[in-house]
Design a protein around this nucleic acid. Structure first.
Length: 168
DNA sequence: GTCACCTTAGAAG
DNA sequence: CTTCTAAGGTGAC
């Protein structure tokens, strides 16, 4: 039995994001699609449960706030059940980084009690199913270097710049 | 068991 | 300043 999920589009000035919801909440958020990845995305909300539509409204508002460099006042429930225990610890730590602030991978590692798992933290960030809402882009390398970003370094630069963060 | 990673501290040029 | 190495935890195969 596979978990039921619904994909809904989010139009922003940066393109169309896609949110995926399960029975538990927001499970995934994708950057604007480039190719033919839009299969399964609902174009109408007609058959979408009321519960999900309500979450979606919150998600859209939160996403647009962050894209504009502001802190969202409200988050939708997140379904992180597909992540490992370690990954959930990392993602939870990431959510504590507020707008305009940054941390290093090493700081995250220490925050979750695994001071040497710096590289693993990077891996967990890369596996983050909900970029932007879980601010993996606010994590820089130890020497304030940009580091990497699976979703594309251009996004990381753009988001940080809008939040007024300086990096090299 | 192997290998790839969104790392880091330290050594060397 | 720069590039290079080794060590390192976790996850996917």
């Amino acid at each position: 039995m596979k978990a039921q999920s619904v994909k809904l589009p989010i139009s922003t000035s940066d393109g169309q994001f896609v949110a995926r919801y399960t029975e538990k909440g927001l499970a995934e958020l994708n950057f604007p699609l480039v190719g033919t990845l839009r299969c399964g995305v609902r174009t109408s909300q007609r058959d979408v449960p009321t519960k999900v539509r309500r979450w979606h409204q919150v998600t859209v508002a939160a996403l647009k706030n962050i894209l504009a460099g502001r802190s969202p006042k409200k988050f939708p429930p997140l379904d992180l059940s597909n992540g490992t225990t370690f990954q959930r610890k990392v993602w939870n730590a990431l959510r504590k980084i507020s707008c305009g602030q940054t941390k290093s991978y090493g700081e995250i590692a220490r925050a979750i009690g695994k001071p040497n798992a710096v590289r693993a933290v990077g891996g967990a960030c890369g596996a983050n199913p909900i970029p932007v809402l879980i601010p993996c882009h606010r994590v820089l390398a130890a020497n304030k270097k940009l580091g990497g970003f699976s979703g594309g370094l251009n996004w990381k630069r753009k988001l940080l710049t809008r939040e007024g963060v300086m990096f090299r």
